[in-house]
Amino acid sequence: MERRNFLRTAVVGSTAAAFGGTLWRGAASAAPAQPATGPYGGLQAANGDGILLPAGFTSRVVARSGKTVSGSSYAWHSAPDGGATFADGSGWIYVSNSEVASGSGGGASAVRFDSSGSVTGAYRILSGTNNNCAGGRTPWNTWLSCEEVTRGAVYETDPWGVNAAVQRPAMGRFKHEAAAADPDHGYVYLTEDETDGRFYRFRPTTWGNLASGTLQVLVAGSATSGPVTWTTVPDPDGTPTQTRYQVAGAKVFNGGEGCFYAAGTCWFTTKGDNRVWAYDAAASSLSLVYDDSLVTSGTAPLTGVDNVTRSASGDLYVAEDGGNLEICLITPQNTVSPFLRVSGQSSSEITGPAFSPDGTRLYFSSQRGTSGSSSGGITYEVKGPFRG
């Protein structure tokens, strides 16, 4: 995502019950989250990486743009963006997009870790694409890398780098942002990074095969909550009419960003109004989880909403593009607080938050690092007593 000049305003796994169910659905339908002290307490002074963390948490640098990743012979890509993790035997893989043009190395890369968390390799998994921003993992262990350009495409990639990436045009050609697979209902949800963007879902003809299927767009009134319906997009290719203008009454979302599905709910963010939304797939209804303009006391802790993920406890972790470069935590109890802050990198943005499969490590990137340039990206790991 490009640097914003104004303020803007969940991993598939066995902990779905903690993240969804009565507690979260009740919270999502109640008043949006309000500031409170987080479950880990306040932030400590900046550490040697320039990161402010709660007591008991530590950080390390995993990779720097243009520098060889330790334990490999691979130079990390520029402008690291959306990311996800994949179990790999007793270790795991973290994949990360590169939000630069094809001629500058656009695509995606991966870092492999062993069971102790040591880096054992790094490599390219997608090349020759443009402004790969966010995306999402699938239940069949592929990474959907999305192009944030007009008539951008979704590419299905192999985190292990063995199989060639495949473009998935049936998922629509538009300014893609993120994707979230819903194995419970057989959809992949998609956000669109336009000021008058839409929220889509794609139903594959066969679950697990994204080569063909039906693209639909959410239709609703101007309200921020309530029942919604879906209508098929007549021409997913987006020519001559772009997908967001093809269906009358499609609900407008101001700058769609991250999205994440678990336990019947898809959470997604919109940067233009600093909102975090919840779509209840079973009830086909929409509600607000967070809106900075509805914070009733003090200063809104979360602005510039962007990528989103969750922990095993059901907490949402929302990265900031802008604001004061924090990852903020929204609990199922409807509280919001800073979890970490990156200092000395005011011309950057926070991207790609994702937990290791065991939930003990959080990965994320500062897209432009201390230099403010795409070539200055830094990818980090945070380790600590994340609540289970």
Rank of each mutant, 00 (worst) to 15 (best):
L329G: 01
I125C: 06
G117V: 01
G352H: 01
C133E: 10
P332H: 05
T265R: 07
A63H: 01
P32I: 09
P169S: 10
A33E: 07
C266G: 00
G323Y: 04
G21R: 12
V95T: 15
T15A: 13
F6P: 02
T138K: 01
T370C: 04
A181S: 15
A262T: 15
A33G: 09
Y94M: 06
A30M: 09
G344R: 13
A108S: 14
G42Y: 04
G208Q: 03
G106F: 03
N334E: 05
I51F: 07
A122N: 09
G376N: 13
F86P: 11
R387M: 09
A36D: 14
W76R: 07
T231S: 15
G369M: 10
Q367Y: 01
R124D: 14
S127K: 12
Q34V: 07
A75M: 01
S365W: 01
V342K: 14
A180P: 00
G48E: 09
G197P: 04
V228Q: 05
V166H: 03
I125M: 08
G369A: 11
V342H: 12
S212T: 15
K251N: 00
G128N: 08
G38F: 06
F386N: 05
G322T: 06
Q216W: 04
L325Q: 14
G56L: 09
P39Y: 00
A180E: 10
G213W: 03
T232K: 12
T335I: 11
P240L: 09
G50I: 06
G13M: 06
K383W: 00
D237H: 07
S90H: 08
R201W: 03
V295E: 05
G344T: 13
N209Y: 03
T58F: 01
R341C: 00
V233H: 02
I93M: 04
L126T: 08
Y94H: 14
W267C: 10
L215E: 10
P139M: 11
V305P: 01
A178S: 15
D321K: 10
C259N: 15
S98I: 02
P54G: 11
S297R: 14
H77L: 13
I378T: 14
A181M: 10
E192C: 08
G105P: 12
F19D: 06
G21S: 14
V154Y: 04
L340I: 05
Y200H: 02
T206A: 15
L218R: 09
S115G: 13
A319T: 07
A16C: 14
V61L: 11
G103M: 05
S313V: 04
A312K: 15
L52R: 15
L329F: 01
